[in-house]
Structure formats: structure tokens, C-alpha cells
Design a binder for these strands. Structure first.
Lengths: 231, 231
DNA sequence: CAAGTATATTGTAAAAATTACAATAATTCA
DNA sequence: TGAATTATTGTAATTTTTACAATATACTTG
């Protein structure tokens, strides 16, 4: 390899994940409390340098997720790559940002080798983040808004069985906008990819709501026919 | 820097551009005939390794564009990053893909240091491309389809003054779908961000068409009010 | 067990947007 | 002057979106 080329092979590449979760308080993001330099003892997006001998950006992002949640089958998607010259104090580090959606209720989040703690933060109460993580988070939030209007990814954030009210609150939290109850239900049901499970809530001190589930098979069928999801 | 870190700082990062142009034959992509290894004498997407001391992915992509076209003010947007382990024969090279839109008519394209030739290819008649450039191109094509339905970027591909028929042909070429003449015009005009220039075509052997221009100020006004572009 | 509390569920009419469809107009050329 | 070629325009039917409020069901409490 000639000198000219060697100059170029001196970069590191990392992944950073914006992990969204949803509960009764609204939309949350998972942050870690960094246990290593740089920015030790700061809250930051969970991420790691890519192992150049073993990982693609995608597989590296999945590893970070798995470390944190023990789960492999999560919704994950690349956002974009950030590469300001001075974004990392140790050298030229490009970072490929991802966003992931997880069902908060179903799984518990645990600290890992590089994270002393991991904690959910409401998206409107984030601490100031190191590196360019504020920028990455804002970009992710916009992308989530866009995507949820085009694809049925909201279900990734809800338990397997959910009520229509929960679904509506989710859309409202993400889109920062309220919907009319009747119109929302009409529209969602007309799309025909959620199914009534026949079950109901119980032990709630009001009329119990029907429980629905997402039917990915019906959705796949619609897409094949060139369907335009929108809300 | 410890050994552990050094292992990570051995990657190179490049940019690759999918440059779209539009003419009477339809939608085209600009390819270069590589003058250097690897894949010398192959048609490929124009791109280059990022200068780690000077460039961000964005600025590197703009430099490639400028080299090829002499222009700086082009529509350009990041697509995503590709990082298969074996995608480059010289080592671990990640590539940040971009797509750009240029007005074919207005400017001429010239070869550069790393390109012996540069040539427009109709998007349905591309040669087989090296690296993962086929994958990148396909991804870019899908993204263009999505974006043109959401943002008025079509105008970036047309001359300053254009006819409604030209605009319709552009949408049809990108979306691979035909529109009804009357409905298309109604919709476009109702969006109210193209303006009649008062000019007409001439020296055409049929009724001359009115010439319109894109009015970005009106578009900006609409967006502030939360407008949802769609077609 | 009756009344109270809290949320779930449902329909309809008006307005807006989309779709389907074909006849007339303006220029150049022979 | 007419032949050729593409540009331009309107309307009715259908579908989608919007705005709006009364009733239903379970649990809790007195």
C-alpha cells in the first residue's frame, strides 16, 4: 500500500443508536452513563467503535442493542452518518447513526461493559449530550415522525396486544399533534392490518377496551399491491 | 493512544455519488470510466476517498461533484453508508453514498483526475457496476421516488424555464407511472409554487407551450404552515 | 345494589380531494 | 390554406377527510 493510501486508512468508524421506547408517560429514549473516556460520567447515546475485522455498521449496531437489552429481533434502521472533523477528541471518528424501536414493557434494560447505567429519558427532558449526539437525536426524532406516517412501525413500540387508545396516544406523542377519536379509529381500522383479538382489558375501573394486535401478513399483502400508508 | 484504540483507526471512508440528470430520453445517471485501480477501466459511480485532514462526508461529496461539473450549487443529499467487509480490495473502506440532481441542459460534464471519461447512462441501461455500486444505485433510485413525492426537488432536474409537459414527463420517468394531463396540471398549479413566466416556446412545429419557473419563496411559505406535499 | 366515575365506542352530514373523461386552440410547415 | 402536432381547459361522479356528541361498559363506593 503506498503512502498516499496509508494517509486514508487512519479513520475509525462507530455506531450510535437512538433507541425509542413508549410508555404511559410518552416517548422515551434510552441513554447510557458512560463508564469510559472520553466523556466518562456523561449521559450519551449508546454506541461503540466498529470492529473492523468483524462487523458491518448494521451488525455493530445490532451488537450494541443486544448488549443493552439482550434482544436481537428489534426494529432497527440506519439514519445517516455524521463526520465533523472535531467530533471526537481521539481522532477522526465517523459515526453511523441508527434508530431502534423497542417494546419497553416486555424487556428490561441492563448496563454493559461500556455503560455504567442505562436509563429511559422522556424525549423532552434529555440532558445535554456529548459529541454530536444532540444533533443525532434531533435528526432521529424527525425521521421517526416521517417514518411513522409511511410505515406501520408504531406497533414495534407497543405490547403485542394493545388498545386503540394506546395506539392513538403513541401517534400523538410522536407526531406532537392530537387526533379526533372517531376519525383516528375509522382510519386505522380501514387500513385493515390490525385485528381484534377478542380479548379485553380487565381490572380497569372503567369500561374495558378491546385488545388488538398488529397483523403483518395483511400489511405485506397491502404493500405488494402498491399501497400508500399515511396518517 | 493505546493498542486497543489503534486497531480501530485503520479504516478509510469514501463518498460515492449517484448523480441524476433528466433529458428528453428520460432519467439518466452520470458514471465515470475509472482511470485508476481498483477496477480501472470499469464504469462506476463517481466518488473518492475522504481527505481525513480536511473533509467531512458532505464536503467531500461536494468536491467530487465540483470536479466533475465545475458547479458548487447543486442539490445533494446523503443516502446512507455502506460497509460490507469485502467491498473494497485495498482494505476496510466504508462509503457514504450521496445523491445529487443536476440540470443536464445547463452544464457540461468533464472528466477529472480520477475519471478518464464521464458519461450519462439511461437508468434502465446501466452497465454492471463494481464494488457495491449496483446496490447503491438501486437504493438511490428508490429514495428519489420517495423524495419527489414529498418535496419539490423535481425542479432541480429541469432548466430554469420549463413547460408543464416537461414537468409531467419528469414525474412519470421517476415514478414509472403515467398521469392524466388535466389532473396533473390541476394538482401542480393548485400547489402554487410554480409561476407562469409569460414566455412561450418558439420554433416548435405545434402549439407552443407556456414556460413556467419554480418559485422557492412560495414553497418556503407553504412549508412553514405545515404543508404536506404529495403527488 | 344503586349511583357515581372513568374511559370506550360509534355515525352522519358537509366539505374537500381525487378521478375519469374529450373537445378546442395555437403554432409551424408544406 | 389546410395538415400536422402538441397545448390547454372543465365538469360530474366518487372517494376521502373533517367536524362534531351521545351512549355503553366495567369497576368502585356508599
Amino acid at each position: 500500500m503506498d503512502v498516499n493510501l496509508q494517509e486514508h486508512f487512519q479513520a475509525a468508524v462507530s455506531v450510535d443508536n437512538v433507541i425509542f421506547g413508549f410508555d404511559t408517560n410518552g416517548l422515551n429514549v434510552l441513554l447510557i452513563y458512560r463508564g469510559a473516556e472520553p466523556y466518562r460520567d456523561h449521559w450519551a447515546l449508546p454506541g461503540d467503535l466498529i470492529d473492523l475485522k468483524a462487523d458491518t455498521p448494521d451488525s455493530a449496531a445490532v451488537k450494541v442493542l443486544r448488549n443493552l437489552t439482550g434482544l436481537e429481533e428489534l426494529y432497527i434502521d440506519q439514519i445517516r452518518t455524521f463526520g465533523r472533523l472535531d467530533r471526537h477528541p481521539y481522532g477522526r471518528v465517523f459515526t453511523v447513526a441508527y434508530f431502534a424501536l423497542i417494546k419497553t414493557q416486555d424487556y428490561s434494560v441492563e448496563a454493559s461493559s461500556w455503560a455504567e447505567q442505562a436509563e429511559w429519558f422522556p424525549i423532552d427532558k434529555l440532558p445535554d449530550l456529548p459529541f454530536d449526539h444532540n444533533e443525532i437525536f434531533n435528526y432521529a426524532k424527525e425521521l421517526l415522525k416521517m417514518k411513522i406516517r409511511k410505515q406501520p412501525i408504531g406497533f414495534e413500540l407497543l405490547p403485542k396486544h394493545f388498545t386503540l387508545t394506546e395506539l392513538q396516544r403513541l401517534y400523538e406523542a410522536i407526531l406532537e399533534k392530537e387526533f379526533d377519536v372517531r376519525n383516528f379509529r375509522k382510519k386505522i381500522l380501514s387500513m385493515d392490518f390490525i385485528t381484534d383479538t377478542g380479548l379485553k382489558q380487565h381490572s380497569v375501573m372503567h369500561r374495558p377496551a378491546k385488545l388488538y394486535k398488529y397483523n403483518s401478513r395483511k400489511y405485506a399483502k397491502l404493500m405488494t399491491g402498491g399501497y400508500d400508508f399515511d396518517l
